[in-house]
Amino acid sequence: MSGPALSRPAGLIVFGAVLILVAAVTLALPHMVNNYLVRVVIVMCIDVILVASMGLGNGFTGVFSLGHVGFVAVGAYTSGILSLPVTMKHAFLPDLPHWLASFSLPFLPATIAAGLVCAALAAVVGAPLMRLSGYFVSVATLGFLIIVNVVLINASDFTRGARTFAGVPLQTTLPWAMGWMVVTLTVLARIAYSPFGRRFRVVREDPIAARAVGLSILPVRLSAFIVGAFFAGVGGSLYGHYLGAFSPASFYLPYTFALVSMLVIGGMGSISGAVLGVVLVTVTSEVLRNLERGLDLGVIHIPPLYGASQIVLGMMFILVMIFRPSGLMGDREVSPGLFLRRKPTGERE
């Protein structure tokens, strides 16, 4: 573990304290701020799930995949088809096979099913793709994203094709989003900083040395890819049940680049970096989006400049890349232990 090791009881106490804090925020927030800010927090939680799970493959194993949003799309559509009420299935998807059309799952099983479908898909797709490295794997996974998009558009019996998939129950509330985010971050941190997770970084840093000590590359990369895809499917389900209506175009290049930029800004080899990247990009773009509508501060009057927020955001990305090329966190972590004990010298690097 890159953070200082805590004794087991202290670690559990800190984890418990964080859980209580998250629960308190989840319960108190809707009473303290308006619905708009609650929604921003929900979107942030979903993006944290997606970016952190993307970071497991892209950052920790160094396999830069651009196909993550493909899994998000599969997750959203899978859970959407499963949880659509039966009457709506008849109206919206009349050509659905009978066995799918005759039942409707609650939110939680639909979300887990979406995750499992994505994990299975990742196993099939990853088996050949995870043999590639560098640019080749980026291009190949981008190909996967394009294939998912084309399949979604043409499998119109299941997805309504390019038309909007609507009627998904709006069930992603703050407790659901927060809960899944805590589960995701806990699981990812446990994996990434376990002895098994150390293998991720070994195959990233030096594949030849890894092979020399008897570590075969493919299973390591593939397992990170599959775990990442599971949580991408979960995040996709949450996103689908947050929007209620989406189309294949919602899960394509613009969303891919939004998630990649959050990951790169935060720091690719760090789970807390992923959280930081999401929070920073979301807060900045929300603030800028409200600023660009123009301001009337009594003396100064700034006219609306729509689109200015995207330009400023783009400039910020460039600056971060110039001054902090490995992202704000790099591969460091903020772990609860930092508040309790000083970092032992010589722990890392």
Partner: peptide, 11 residues
């Protein structure tokens, strides 16, 4: 300052 102004208008 920018964030404060943005939040103010957002709220």
């Amino acid at each position: 300052v920018a964030a404060g102004a943005g939040l103010a208008s957002g709220l």
